[in-house]
Deep mutational scan, measured.
Amino acid sequence: EPLWIRPDAPSRCTWQLGRPASESPHHHTAPAKSPKILPDILKKIGDTPMVRINKIGKKFGLKCELLAKCEFFNAGGSVKDRISLRMIEDAERDGTLKPGDTIIEPTSGNTGIGLALAAAVRGYRCIIVMPEKMSSEKVDVLRALGAEIVRTPTNARFDSPESHVGVAWRLKNEIPNSHILDQYRNASNPLAHYDTTADEILQQCDGKLDMLVASVGTGGTITGIARKLKEKCPGCRIIGVDPEGSILAEPEELNQTEQTTYEVEGIGYDFIPTVLDRTVVDKWFKSNDEEAFTFARMLIAQEGLLCGGSAGSTVAVAVKAAQELQEGQRCVVILPDSVRNYMTKFLSDRWMLQKGFLKEEDLTEKKPWWWHLRVQELGLSAPLTVLPTITCGHTIEILREKGFDQAPVVDEAGVILGMVTLGNMLSSLLAGKVQPSDQVGKVIYKQFKQIRLTDTLGRLSHILEMDHFALVVHEQIQYHSTGKSSQRQMVFGVVTAIDLLNFVAAQERDQK
C-alpha cells in the first residue's frame, strides 16, 4: 500500500453525458421521505430548503428570480454533511469501515464536522487534520463531537509532509485500522450531490432553472449537481466560483495573481482535486475576500440567511453572472454553511477592521482624538531585521541585547519573508524542534498583521487588541530589464502597544 495517494490523481470516472444510468458502476440512493420521529440526527441530513432572495437581486438590477439552496440546514450545519454520511455509508457497505475503526480526514473543517457527527452516532474514533487558518468555532464544535484535532501550517503546499493532507496520511500509516475516506478522491463525494442535492433542486424548481452558481473546494458539490442538471435540464448554465489565490478556475489566465492566501474558508485549493470535473462548468468567476464577507453580511442583514463567507462569494458572483438572465428565468445559488463557524471572524466588526474589510468610518461609535491620525505620526525608528541564514542562537542574543521581542526576517534585497519572535524561538528550542545552530528560517511564521503608514491609529489599535505587534510595510514598484514591473513589500518598522501608548501619553502631556 502506498504511503500516500495524491489528492489530485487523474480521475478514473467514466461518467458521460447521455450515458444510461443503468451502466453506472456505483451504488445510487434515492431521496427517502422522513418519518415524523427521526431514529437519529443523521436522518436530518439532506432535504434542505430552497429560499427566495428578495432584496439583493433587485438591489443589483437582476431581472431573474434568485433562489438560495440553504445547505446550513443540514444536521452539522453545512453541505459537507451529505458527503460525510455518504462516504461512511459506502465504506461500511463495501466492508472497508468496521466497528471500532478510526476515521482520519484532512479538511478545512466542515467535512470534519460532518464526519465527527456521523462518527459520534456510529461509534468510530475520528481524527481531523486541518490548517491553522480555520476558525476556532470549527475546532470547538469538533472537540465537542469527540474528534481529535491536529493543526497544520496554512501556507504548507498540499504535497508537503507538513500539509493537512501529508499529516493525515502519516497518521494513517501509524494508526492500525485507520482510514482516510479522502473527500478529494472519493466518488461518494460527487455521488452524494448527484443522487440527492441535484434531485432536490430539480424537484423544488419543478425542473425549471436557467443558471446554477456554486463555490468550489473539493469540487464534489458542483460536479455532482452539474452532471445531473446537464442530464435533466441541459439549458442550465453552470457557474463556478473560485477565490483569488486558488488555481481551480479555467482558463488558467484567471488564476494569475501574486496573491497566495485568502481568508474565506472551505473553497479554493492549490491543486485540482480528483473529484472535480471542470468540463461540466460553463464559466468560472474569481471572487475576493472583501466581496465575500460584504455579501455574507448582506445576506444575514437583508435576507435573514445566517450563512458563512463562501455563501457571500457565491452570491457576489451570482449578481454578476445572472445579469444575462431575463424576467421569468431563474438562478439558484448554493449557500454551503452557517455563520456559526465564523462568529469571531467576519461577523465581528473588530475582525473586519483588522483585516481591512471594514473602515473605521463605517462604525458610528465615538472615537478618541488620536483615532484618525496616521501611523506615520508615530515617528517610528528604523527596524531591526535579520536574514533567514542567521542562526536561532545568534538571533536570540541580538533580540535580548537590543531589547526586542520580535524581528522581521528579510532577504538580501529587503523583501519581507516573515517574522521571528523570542517566545516562538525559545519554545521551539525547548520542544526540540530546532537547535541553536539551525537557521532562523526554520522558525519563520507568517501569521502576523501588516499595516501601512497611511493607515489610521484606530486601525492599529484594533490590531493591537488581539496581537502583540504589527509590521509596518510599504510597497515598492521595481522595474526589470524586460520592461515588466513587480510590486514588493518592504519593512518600514515594527509597532507595539507600548509605542502607541507612549505616543498618546506624550501628545497629551505636551497639550497640557
Results as ranks from 00 to 15, higher is better:
residue 238 I to K: 03
residue 238 I to E: 00
residue 238 I to W: 00
residue 239 I to N: 00
residue 239 I to Q: 03
residue 240 G to D: 08
residue 240 G to S: 07
residue 241 V to G: 10
residue 241 V to T: 10
residue 243 P to C: 03
residue 243 P to V: 09
residue 244 E to D: 10
residue 245 G to Q: 00
residue 246 S to E: 03
residue 246 S to M: 01
residue 247 I to A: 09
residue 247 I to H: 07
residue 248 L to W: 04
residue 250 E to W: 05
residue 251 P to H: 07
residue 251 P to N: 05
residue 252 E to F: 06
residue 254 L to M: 11
residue 254 L to S: 04
residue 255 N to F: 07
residue 256 Q to G: 15
residue 256 Q to F: 11
residue 256 Q to H: 13
residue 257 T to G: 10
residue 257 T to Q: 10
residue 258 E to G: 15
residue 258 E to P: 14
residue 258 E to C: 15
residue 260 T to L: 02
residue 261 T to Y: 13
residue 263 E to A: 15
residue 264 V to G: 00
residue 264 V to H: 01
residue 264 V to C: 10
residue 264 V to D: 01
residue 266 G to T: 01
residue 266 G to N: 02
residue 267 I to D: 05
residue 267 I to F: 01
residue 267 I to A: 03
residue 268 G to W: 00
residue 269 Y to D: 01
residue 269 Y to M: 01
residue 272 I to M: 12
residue 272 I to P: 05
residue 273 P to Y: 06
residue 274 T to W: 00
residue 274 T to K: 06
residue 274 T to N: 06
residue 277 D to I: 00
residue 279 T to K: 13
residue 283 K to N: 15
residue 283 K to W: 12
residue 284 W to V: 00
residue 284 W to R: 00
residue 284 W to E: 00
residue 286 K to I: 01
residue 291 E to V: 13
residue 291 E to K: 14
residue 292 A to M: 03
residue 294 T to L: 03
residue 295 F to Q: 12
residue 295 F to C: 15
residue 296 A to E: 06
residue 296 A to F: 06
residue 297 R to D: 00
residue 297 R to E: 01
residue 297 R to N: 00
residue 297 R to P: 01
residue 298 M to K: 14
residue 299 L to M: 07
residue 302 Q to F: 10
residue 303 E to G: 06
residue 303 E to Y: 06
residue 304 G to C: 02
residue 304 G to P: 00
residue 305 L to Y: 09
residue 306 L to K: 04
residue 308 G to M: 02
residue 309 G to M: 01
residue 310 S to E: 05
residue 310 S to R: 04
residue 310 S to D: 05
residue 312 G to T: 05
residue 313 S to D: 05
residue 314 T to R: 03
residue 314 T to Y: 05
residue 315 V to D: 02
residue 317 V to C: 10
residue 317 V to H: 07
residue 317 V to K: 07
residue 318 A to D: 01
residue 319 V to M: 15
residue 319 V to H: 04
residue 320 K to G: 11
residue 321 A to M: 13
residue 321 A to K: 04
residue 322 A to T: 05
residue 322 A to L: 01
residue 323 Q to W: 13
residue 323 Q to I: 05
residue 323 Q to D: 11
residue 324 E to M: 13
residue 327 E to A: 11
residue 327 E to W: 02
residue 329 Q to L: 09
residue 330 R to A: 08
residue 332 V to M: 13
residue 335 L to T: 00
residue 336 P to Q: 13
residue 336 P to F: 01
residue 337 D to N: 04
residue 337 D to P: 04
residue 337 D to K: 04
residue 338 S to V: 04
residue 338 S to D: 06
residue 339 V to R: 06
residue 341 N to A: 01
residue 341 N to Y: 01
residue 342 Y to G: 00
residue 343 M to L: 07
residue 343 M to F: 07
residue 344 T to I: 07
residue 344 T to Q: 08
residue 344 T to L: 05
residue 344 T to G: 13
residue 346 F to M: 12
residue 347 L to M: 07
residue 348 S to L: 06
residue 349 D to R: 02
residue 349 D to K: 08
residue 350 R to C: 07
residue 351 W to Y: 05
residue 352 M to H: 01
residue 353 L to A: 10
residue 353 L to I: 14
residue 353 L to E: 14
residue 354 Q to R: 08
residue 354 Q to L: 13
residue 354 Q to A: 10
residue 354 Q to W: 13
residue 355 K to V: 05
residue 357 F to G: 01
residue 358 L to E: 10
residue 359 K to L: 10
residue 359 K to M: 13
residue 360 E to Q: 15
residue 361 E to T: 15
residue 362 D to P: 10
residue 362 D to W: 09
residue 362 D to R: 12
residue 363 L to F: 11
residue 363 L to M: 12
residue 365 E to D: 15
residue 365 E to R: 15
residue 365 E to P: 11
residue 365 E to Y: 09
residue 366 K to F: 07
residue 367 K to D: 03
residue 367 K to S: 08
residue 369 W to V: 07
residue 369 W to P: 07
residue 371 W to G: 11
residue 372 H to K: 04
residue 372 H to T: 14
residue 373 L to K: 07
residue 376 Q to E: 12
residue 376 Q to K: 10
residue 376 Q to G: 10
residue 376 Q to H: 11
residue 378 L to C: 05
residue 378 L to W: 03
residue 378 L to T: 01
residue 378 L to S: 07
residue 381 S to V: 13
residue 381 S to P: 14
residue 381 S to N: 09
residue 381 S to E: 13
residue 383 P to L: 15
residue 383 P to F: 08
residue 386 V to Y: 11
residue 386 V to F: 12
residue 386 V to T: 12
residue 386 V to M: 11
residue 386 V to K: 06
residue 387 L to D: 10
residue 388 P to K: 10
residue 389 T to R: 13
residue 390 I to C: 11
residue 393 G to Q: 10
residue 393 G to R: 13
residue 393 G to S: 14
residue 394 H to T: 10
residue 394 H to I: 12
residue 394 H to K: 10
residue 395 T to P: 10
residue 400 R to K: 13
residue 400 R to Q: 14
residue 401 E to V: 15
residue 401 E to R: 05
residue 403 G to N: 03
residue 404 F to E: 03
residue 404 F to M: 14
residue 405 D to R: 09
residue 405 D to I: 08
residue 405 D to K: 06
residue 406 Q to R: 05
residue 406 Q to E: 12
residue 408 P to D: 02
residue 408 P to Q: 12
residue 409 V to D: 01
residue 410 V to T: 15
residue 410 V to Q: 15
residue 411 D to L: 09
residue 411 D to G: 10
residue 412 E to K: 15
residue 414 G to V: 12
residue 415 V to F: 15
residue 415 V to P: 02
residue 417 L to A: 06
residue 418 G to P: 02
residue 420 V to K: 00
residue 420 V to Q: 07
residue 421 T to D: 06
residue 422 L to N: 09
residue 423 G to Q: 05
residue 424 N to I: 10
residue 424 N to G: 14
residue 426 L to F: 15
residue 428 S to A: 14
residue 429 L to M: 15
residue 429 L to S: 11
residue 429 L to C: 12
residue 430 L to N: 14
residue 431 A to G: 13
residue 432 G to P: 08
residue 433 K to A: 13
residue 434 V to W: 05
residue 437 S to R: 14
residue 437 S to H: 09
residue 438 D to I: 10
residue 440 V to I: 15
residue 441 G to E: 12
residue 441 G to H: 08
residue 442 K to A: 13
residue 446 K to T: 11
residue 446 K to R: 15
residue 446 K to M: 12
residue 447 Q to W: 12
residue 447 Q to H: 14
residue 447 Q to K: 15
residue 447 Q to R: 15
residue 448 F to V: 15
residue 448 F to Q: 11
residue 448 F to D: 02
residue 448 F to A: 01
residue 448 F to I: 15
residue 449 K to Q: 12
residue 450 Q to H: 09
residue 452 R to Q: 02
residue 453 L to N: 11
residue 453 L to C: 13
residue 454 T to I: 14
residue 457 L to R: 02
residue 458 G to D: 15
residue 459 R to N: 10
residue 461 S to G: 14
residue 462 H to M: 11
residue 463 I to Y: 11
residue 466 M to Q: 15
residue 467 D to M: 08
residue 468 H to R: 14
residue 469 F to R: 06
residue 470 A to G: 12
residue 470 A to E: 04
residue 471 L to K: 03
residue 471 L to A: 08
residue 472 V to H: 06
residue 473 V to D: 10
residue 474 H to R: 04
residue 476 Q to W: 01
residue 476 Q to P: 14
residue 476 Q to Y: 10
residue 477 I to Y: 08
residue 477 I to G: 06
residue 478 Q to E: 08
residue 479 Y to F: 14
residue 480 H to A: 15
residue 481 S to I: 12
residue 481 S to K: 13
residue 482 T to L: 15
residue 484 K to D: 02
residue 484 K to W: 13
residue 485 S to N: 09
residue 485 S to I: 11
residue 486 S to Y: 13
residue 486 S to D: 15
residue 489 Q to W: 11
residue 490 M to D: 14
residue 492 F to T: 12
residue 492 F to D: 13
residue 492 F to A: 12
residue 492 F to E: 13
residue 492 F to R: 15
residue 493 G to E: 10
residue 495 V to D: 08
residue 496 T to N: 13
residue 498 I to Q: 02
residue 498 I to S: 10
residue 499 D to S: 03
residue 501 L to H: 05
residue 504 V to R: 08
residue 504 V to T: 15
residue 504 V to W: 10
residue 506 A to C: 11
residue 507 Q to F: 14
residue 507 Q to K: 15
residue 509 R to Q: 14
residue 510 D to H: 13
residue 511 Q to N: 12
residue 512 K to W: 03
